[in-house]
């Protein structure tokens, strides 16, 4: 297993390299002068030139690229002009906050979405099933930035149950901390939750009609184990695939959620940086998020292997079982 993870890690290097190139290309090659964009329409030509020099934008492209990659390898994501700080330290300040938010959302999504899908599938065409289906369809269609605003309107403005903005600290007490977390994590959890419910349902329905489910029942197992153990473990593969995609949605959704709730995370950092036209920060944070995503998907590949014994360890050349 260790070997497999190592091999996959090595496999990821080209992808991370491509990701870096994409960020570079987007910020350098697309029409429009980042320096001009950063300084806004009122900036003078001299100011723009000066900033271009500072950013190294007047160097030939390949020099810029080598410089950029060289910095990245050393963990240097550039220096923010507006914060006067290395981008990586800005990111590291906020990354844990985003992690807390994304993780709570993921836990909510999994704990509600998957059981809902299982129940829905095992009672196909029941009222319960239709309810889950309708709610999950609305869930995948809802703009979460609207949901967030509506939650604020009802639960903060009207009812005053939860704070509308900000993140609590543990110093203020656990309850305060959780209270701050409730609305943002529900907002962020909605789409993954609905998606998990849908994919779990369809994947379970496919599995439930398989012969080995009949075998499990014929053994005299309780229905709970037939569904929860025999069917569910087989239904996990598509759920894992969706999990990989949902991590991406969570990181993207964090940008919107953090904006609504003024959550001091990486998404908020990006949006603030956009407001301040600090494109070094935007570039660095986006790159960081993409790398996180790639690593999470490695983790999911490993989970695949654990869940499904038929997946080959040594994918590619000469794979031969174990």
């Amino acid at each position: 297993m260790g070997k497999y993870i190592l091999k996959r890690l090595v496999d990821l290097l080209p992808t991370i390299f491509v990701v870096a190139i994409i960020v570079f290309v987007i910020t350098r090659l697309i029409p429009g002068d980042p320096a001009a964009v950063m300084l806004g329409p009122q900036a003078s030509v001299e100011d723009i030139q000066e900033l271009r020099d500072d950013l190294g934008l007047n160097e030939p492209l390949h020099t810029q690229f080598l410089q950029y990659i060289g910095d990245l390898v050393q963990g240097d994501f550039g220096v923010s002009l507006t914060y006067n700080q290395p981008v990586i330290s800005l990111i590291m300040d906020r990354f844990p906050n985003t992690l807390v938010l994304a993780f709570s959302a993921l836990v909510i999504a999994l704990l509600i979405g998957i059981p809902a899908g299982i129940i829905s599938a095992s009672k196909q065409n029941s009222v319960m099933d239709y309810t889950v289906m309708v709610i999950s369809l609305i869930g995948v269609s809802i703009p979460i930035f609207w949901l967030g605003v509506m939650l604020v309107l009802y639960f903060s403005v009207n009812l005053g149950w939860f704070p509308a903005t900000g993140m609590g600290t543990m110093d203020e007490g656990f309850i305060t901390y959780i209270k701050h977390l409730v609305l943002p994590s529900i907002t962020l959890a909605t789409i993954p939750m609905a998606t998990f419910a849908r994919i779990t349902r369809s994947s379970m329905l496919e599995v439930i009609s398989q012969d080995y489910i009949k075998t499990a029942r014929a053994k005299g197992l309780k229905e709970f184990f037939v569904i929860g153990k025999h069917a569910f473990k087989n239904a996990l593969t598509p759920i894992l695939t969706v999990l990989g995609m949902q991590v991406s949605a969570l990181l993207g959704g964090a940008v919107l959620t953090e904006t609504i709730f003024s959550w001091p995370g990486m998404g908020r950092l990006i949006v603030d940086a956009i407001d301040k036209r600090d494109f070094v920060v935007v570039q660095g944070t986006v790159l960081f998020i993409a790398i996180i995503f790639v690593l999470v998907n490695l983790l999911i590949d490993v989970l695949y292997k654990i869940v499904n014994p038929r997946v080959n360890y040594s994918s590619g050349k000469g794979g031969e079982g174990k």
Partner: peptide
Amino acid sequence: MRDVRGNEIAMIFQDPMTSLNPVFT
């Protein structure tokens, strides 16, 4: 009935390729 199934009456099926659960040993 569950106590009878698999204990006093057991059953085997047509297709051994599909009647064993692929994800358990």
